[in-house]
Computed example of a mutant assay.
Amino acid sequence: MTEATRVLVLNSGSSSVKYQLIDMAGRRRLATGIVERIGERSARLVHTPADGGRRERGGPFADHRAALRAAAEELAADGTGFDSPELAAVGHRVVHGGDVFSGPVVVDDRVIADIEALVPLAPLHNPGNLEGIRTAAALSPGVPQVAVFDTAFHTTMPEYAARYAIDVRTADAHGIRRYGAHGTSHAYVSRRTAALLGRAPEDVNVIVLHLGNGCSAAAVRGGRCVDTSMGMTPLEGLVMGTRSGDIDPAVVPYLARTAGMSPDEVDELLNRRSGLLGLCGDNDMREVTRRVDEGDGAARLALDVYTHRLRKYIGGYMAVLGRVDAVVFTAGVGENSAPVRAATIAGLEPLGLAVDPDRNASAERGPRFISPQYASVAVAVVPTDEELEIAGQAYDLVST
């Protein structure tokens, strides 16, 4: 009998479906793919098996169901379809689990109902996640569907870190508290950082900086999150590509009174027209740093605001943790932008942090230290792998 060791990881977003097929026996990727621009005439599917031979086809893909069926056809053409006896589970990224889910769960009707109830907390993400779950279940009815939540890693925060200082009855009635995001990334990277240090996760305190178009920081003590920068939604915290991050909440009613802006218009401003884009007109950090090198003042200000906010969170989380073994950069910007890493750590030498210019500029891609030998707190770059983390959590759940 063939042993089921493969996990299909699905990230079913608002307008795209990303997937990876991973063999957990060797932690090998057998295929990757994406269906993007679902519902548009320009929709397309790109499928890449492990042996290369990338295949691409156009839509239309009217909805997530059609997109996933097309992905299933591509996987079946490789002999690794949804009905393969080697498929142990389908692992689904679900953005918001609220305070209901603190770990991965096998999906049943109750889980689906709970995820639906959390849609108001992630209206752009949870509906697409649910479509992925329902469609995959129909395509592979005998295979466990496992939901892995971005918020789950942060449920270990103490109540004083998760609570906002507003009326408790109002907060509890409407689920207003800090939930965080990027939890699968923070979990994976904090564990890999411990391995890089040659120590067990429970013996290590790290500050993880997940810097992509969305950005978040997490303070991780002994493998458990004790604080994180994103809040009830992914808007709070660090400066991001198009999101403001921390802002005086009085700005919202102020804009309503003085500019006549509706709640939806303010939401649009803070989520889609702020951050780097709002400051300098570009939300791609590569373009921002290129403009900085050319002497562009607006880009310089944007980068300074961005890194100033990062330093504030690093200092704050050093105080929260008491002892810090490493500050680690991950995700697209964190892994690839040496200028951002250098500017973020600059001036923090009194706190034991420093960046070695040569190590920081190295083209090396794997987990690595970029701090000099004398630094008392390590600074590292650790590439994230959210898909492998989801696959691992799903496989461990169904194989025990």
Score class of each variant (00 low, 15 high):
Val148Gln: 09
Gly132Asn: 04
Thr155Ile: 00
Gly132Thr: 08
Val148Asn: 01
Gly128Gln: 05
Phe149Leu: 01
Gln145Pro: 09
Ala122Cys: 08
Pro141Cys: 00
Ala147Asp: 00
Leu139His: 10
Gly128Ser: 11
His125Leu: 07
Ala147Trp: 02
Arg110Gly: 02
Pro104Ala: 05
Pro141Val: 00
Asn126Met: 11
Ala138Lys: 11
Val146Ser: 02
Val148Trp: 04
Gly128Cys: 07
Ala113Trp: 07
Ser140Glu: 08
Pro127Asn: 10
Ala122Asp: 05
Gln145His: 11
Ile115Arg: 05
Val146Phe: 10
Glu159Ile: 11
Met157Ile: 01
His154Phe: 14
Ala152Arg: 07
Asp108Glu: 13
Val105Ile: 00
Ala113Glu: 15
Phe153Cys: 04
Pro104Thr: 09
Ala113Pro: 12
Asp109Asn: 08
Pro144Tyr: 02
Ile133Lys: 04
Gln145Leu: 07
Glu159Arg: 15
Arg163Leu: 05
Ile115Gln: 01
Pro104Ile: 06
Thr155Gln: 14
Pro141His: 01
Ala147Cys: 10
Glu159Leu: 14
Arg110Trp: 04
Ala161Glu: 14
Gly128Pro: 14
Thr156Met: 08
Ala162Met: 11
Pro158Asp: 11
Thr151Asp: 03
Val146Met: 05
Arg134Glu: 15
Met157Asp: 00
Thr135Arg: 09
Leu139Tyr: 10
Gly142Glu: 05
Asp109His: 03
Gly132Arg: 04
Gly132Cys: 09
Phe153Pro: 03
Ala117Ser: 15
Leu139Gly: 07
